[in-house]
Amino acid sequence: MASGPEFESVVARYYEPLYQFAFSLTRTEADAGDLTQQTFYVWATKGHQLRDTSKIKTWLFTTLHRQFLETRRRAVRFPHHELESVDRDLPSVAPEADRALDSAQVLEALARVDEVFRAPVALFYLEDCSYQEIADILGVPMGTVKSRISRGIARLQKLLGRDIALNSPKTNPTP
């Protein structure tokens, strides 16, 4: 499964989306690159155990997410900050609905979303994963995933100044 040409084609297909997912979790290039490399290392050593090749994507994203969580659980190299304190330290994103977004703003806003919503929201936007695949990757029931994505999106949109109220002055009221 993880022999040369196959390994290269799996890397070619998935290294970019895996890196994007890792970056949305870690927000540092070095850590995201390392998580991605580690994921492919695990693939090279254990990928042959996967019988169903249609599950490669889910397997890789699951592995990356587990590596990330494992890192977070163990003693960390860098000081640990509670989410709330990080939230205070981050520069605020002015809620200005007409301003064009950029990647840094989006990721900065994602970092301010509750951690439990972050991975499902990143997968929702990044890869064309079905809700079942996202649930499998994160190891939570599908109903939970949908709820977390919905709440995470609402929070993200609000942080980006993109929350849209139903029946707001900018929408036509329902007759």
Partner: peptide
């Protein structure tokens, strides 16, 4: 949603990441 997705997808992997992955293997 489309706008946010586009920004997520603009995150580019380091130019040498693929080479590093393959060289490790």
């Amino acid at each position: 949603q489309q706008e946010i997705r586009e920004q997520f997808q603009r995150v580019a992997a380091p130019a040498d990441l693929r080479r590093r992955i393959l060289s490790e293997h």
